[in-house]
Design a protein around this nucleic acid. Structure first.
Lengths: 243, 243
DNA sequence: ATGTTATCTTTACACCGTAAAGATATGGTT
DNA sequence: AACCATATCTTTACGGTGTAAAGATAACAT
């Protein structure tokens, strides 16, 4: 509700030759460094990235329902129709943002997989990292999984999401001590993958949706979600692969 | 996109003393049966229930993003502001609809729990029923779990959702052969509940989101989601309680 | 220097949620 | 029987949203 209505603000400022930059000091490291140094230029220079960063801020601040094309444009200080030129429509922007989320997520998971050595410890570390990412970036995680407004045909999103799945499948394959093919899966392999993914994804969704707060509230004082996750996995792990 | 724009249609029809009923033949079993028999009355008589039924139709037909107050009003054949009077706002209507979903779901789960006798069979039957409900009513299930537009302080929704959780907890308690208290939980109990719920909820969400289609596609021809669910649970069940 | 193209703004429109006021039927009171 | 309070439904209105189309401006190639 802050920043009520500023239509034609940047334009008016520019027309009046004002010196205060509405959106100055961008990186713009490439060409044209000393063209119009301080006063806000008509061309942003790196608006696409700036819009994505603004979108992530809006998402984590105002939630998924607050993530609108116009809100992102306001956050970036450009006209409300500027995002359309770079992303086509809202689905496009959301999908590109989700792709960024998957890349962040994949990086975190790769780091977690490299940390521990024992297979059981490695599986636990991966699960903890999975949930921790979702807790640190709830808006992003929701965007990546709970929205139907994703265009999976977009190469960047498809690629990042597939990489995420490949990481999971690879971890399951390692715990089964076998190579998992890109094409065919045995029912046992698929069951192991689905079990591990369902467990951790389901726990994450229930946690983010607040469906576990009652349970956590009834537990001995001081028990948090991480401890519940550990307890949940400890009896599932070892019996069957969990990642 | 059908039914483009019919503003003031019902009103105009009524004003012109037309005989064709725009929303005739309601139940209206209570009072005033022979007042104005055929021509659409100003007072609907059971608009609240009719709006909820219309909302469910819109939800399953057009998805969650198509579930708007105005679309529901159109579906029910009343003015766009009529739902507001009965539900306050969109959150109110969505919450009441979710409560209906939970009651449907609880009825299905209760029937599944009564069918099988052996504890292992009962657990599998419950899991299959859980997923089957979500597949039969994907819009409803999404509404019940994946939206932040629910007002859990509404008594009807809170009660129905709590009943659903109580059913789960009771089943876990039975499989552990112990009574589960309403107030306190041991970590082991909570872990069993969280594990069962996460497994089946996670599987359901991934399935509805299309995240498992790749896996299913790589499986031997003819393998469907139900078989994958069975295989996933078969190695989790018995080792640990799954419900 | 000039024309092409990419980038960004302005304008416009339909749909949405919501509030407020008007219209109409119901029921109770006198 | 007349009357009024109330509940129900419609109309009107306003700001916000996505999106399309046209205009303005800067960068670039020639």
């Amino acid at each position: 509700m802050a920043r009520k209505a500023t239509p034609a603000r940047t334009r008016a400022v520019r027309a009046a030759k004002a010196t205060v930059p509405a959106r100055g000091e961008r990186k713009r490291g490439g060409p044209r460094a000393a063209a119009a140094s301080e006063n806000t230029p008509y061309h942003h220079g790196a608006l696409r990235d700036a819009l994505l960063q603004a979108a992530e801020r809006v998402l984590e601040r105002d939630g998924l329902s607050g993530l609108t094309l116009r809100a992102v444009a306001r956050e970036a200080g450009v006209s409300h129709a500027a995002p359309t030129h770079h992303f086509g429509d809202l689905t496009g922007l959301v999908s590109e943002l989700a792709a960024i989320g998957f890349r962040q997520f994949n990086a975190a998971m790769a780091a977690a997989g490299a940390s521990a050595t024992a297979p059981l410890e490695k599986a636990m570390a991966r699960a903890r990292t999975y949930v921790a990412y979702a807790q640190a970036h709830p808006g992003m995680y929701g965007l990546m999984f709970r929205t139907e407004r994703l265009d999976m045909s977009r190469p960047s999103l498809c690629e990042a999401a597939n990489a995420s799945f490949a990481g999971l499948a690879g971890a399951i394959g390692a715990s089964r001590q076998e190579q998992i093919s890109e094409q065919a899966l045995s029912l046992g392999q698929a069951a192991d993958i689905a079990r591990a993914w369902s467990l951790v994804h389901g726990f994450t969704m229930l946690l983010l949706d607040g469906r576990l707060t009652d349970i956590l509230h009834r537990l001995p004082k001081g028990t948090d979600a991480g401890m519940l996750l550990d307890a949940m996995l400890k009896r599932a792990i070892g019996q069957v692969p969990v990642a």
